[in-house]
Design a protein around this nucleic acid. Structure first.
Lengths: 158, 158
DNA sequence: ATGTCTGCAAATCCTTTGCATTTTA
DNA sequence: TAAAATGCAAAGGATTTGCAGACAT
């Protein structure tokens, strides 16, 4: 029963395994059922280096083992439960990422090639505080930064 | 917080009219054509108190005077040109707002009733700086805060 | 004149819904 | 066993595309 604190890739992050376990635990606490399709989805999300689309989760989880509809429904349920975070983006698409409490962060997305990179930190506290002052509750936020990545900049005058 | 404006239209001294003029000017500088459908859209956006959906722009601009497709296409062109800002949000929808240089801000959106309120300021500079350090250029960002508004909180256990 | 927009129709794409069946707790 | 989740088929809804005609500059 591995409960190690090894540093996998990049920053201070727990391994995919424990992230899945943590998610499963939170799902049980919310009396959600842990099924094999969901487990496959969690594993896919846990080993992803950045947010995935429903389609990508479907493929990564084994598109022959679960239906795309199930992916959408489970992702929706997990989003409601705070297990994953949904990142709505341009053109009506959404990306989903496993939530790791205490590891909140955002991303830069290349408008040209779609590359996604993680950015450290988050400066929204002031805005959330303002919203709270207005009487809003259960606050969450979505924020994405768009730009042209280094590799695309040479041809950015398309 | 200085003093509150009862109605935020424009948020400062400038009225809808000058905002439209400014937008038209910028469109001409980018050699975009100023047509009557576009002018109607700009007026609609200029007098809106918060971001509008393509559908709302269509109606506000006079849905019998221009096609919804034209609204989408022009909004897209204006977004590319930086005349309007697109706010992608949940469920594949987007809202659009006229950009007023120097008046950058964000919003709180009620997850339950969809009410939108403006929030002052923006704390993304640190994140954009991080993106710039990674070599990204032409940065823009999208950020929305979601919550349950005061009016909806009583029934927030839906 | 000519490169842009527009309108109309039809297409796409992502996502959601209905319902009978299977599965988890 | 009851509540919840799944699969399959079909629907839904927002946004996009093709193309011929209209328009701004």
């Amino acid at each position: 029963m591995p409960h190690s604190h090894r540093h996998e890739q990049g920053c201070c992050e727990e391994g995919p395994g424990s992230r899945v376990e943590a998610a499963v635990l939170r799902m049980k606490q919310k009396s959600m059922r842990v099924t094999s399709p969901r487990l496959a989805m969690l594993k896919a999300l846990a080993s992803a280096k950045h947010p995935l689309s429903a389609e990508q989760v479907h493929v990564a989880a084994g598109d022959d083992k679960l239906d795309l509809v199930t992916v959408y429904r489970s992702l929706g349920a997990m989003d409601d439960a705070g297990i994953v975070q949904r990142h709505p983006l341009e053109r009506g698409r959404s990306l989903y990422a496993l939530v790791t409490p205490g590891h909140h962060h955002h991303h830069v997305i290349c408008r040209r090639c779609g590359k996604i990179e993680r950015l450290p930190g988050c400066d929204t506290s002031r805005l959330e505080a303002a919203a709270r002052t207005k009487g809003y509750g259960e606050l969450t936020h979505v924020m994405e930064i768009y730009g042209i990545c280094p590799a695309c900049i040479p041809s950015s005058h398309a």
